[in-house]
């Protein structure tokens, strides 16, 4: 009893092999494209999570320091070692690890301070945008504030 394959002449079996190879490669190509997309999506998600985590810690630190000092320049100096003149807005270029990096700005952290209608209360708006994205889409934002009583200095206002 010979198997059907073995009864095929050598040249025919080769043709069969090449045909199988073509079908396998075609199917494998399609499967690989789908799987590669899944890997790319996972990698992108993982990178975005890392960014989000760092952005939230960075925003938290900025909010806490601003809350304790009530000064944007002091906040920028404490967090990034930046010396800025008294202004209402500071844009800090950051790398992917949320470290101050004027050369390669993967992220832009914009801290804007505005006076609230309530006397002594200042609001800080922290916005993170993609440094390579022209549209300036917001990646993460936090609103925080500092209250410095207008008439007297009070200890422990940081809390």
């Amino acid at each position: 009893m010979k198997s059907p394959i073995k009864s095929v002449p050598a040249g025919g079996r080769l043709n069969l092999f090449f045909m199988e190879m073509i079908i396998v490669l075609l199917f494998f190509g399609i499967a690989s494209a789908v799987i590669l997309n899944a890997f790319a999506a996972s990698d992108r998600l993982s990178r975005e999570s890392g960014w989000l985590e760092r952005m939230s810690f960075c925003a938290q630190s900025a909010a806490e320091v601003f809350s304790a000092t009530g000064s944007l320049s002091e906040t920028a100096e404490e967090l990034f070692g930046l010396t800025v003149s008294d202004s209402d807005e500071v844009v800090v270029p950051l790398d992917e690890g949320c470290v101050y990096s004027p050369e390669s700005a993967a992220l832009l952290m914009t801290m804007t301070v505005s006076e609230d209608k309530t006397e002594g209360l200042m609001e800080m708006h922290i916005v993170f945008t993609d440094g390579n994205d022209e549209s300036g889409e917001t990646l993460y934002e936090v609103r925080s504030g500092a209250y410095l009583p207008p008439k007297r200095a009070v200890n422990g206002i940081g809390r």
Binding site: S46, L52, Q60
Partner: peptide, 24 residues
């Protein structure tokens, strides 16, 4: 990989949302 990345994203999104909620 996708499941691990999605969990990571969920975790960091929840943490980031909480930070924003806390400061608001």
């Amino acid at each position: 990989s996708f499941s691990a990345a999605r969990n990571e994203k969920k975790f960091s999104a929840r943490s980031a949302d909480y930070t924003a909620e806390y400061y608001a």
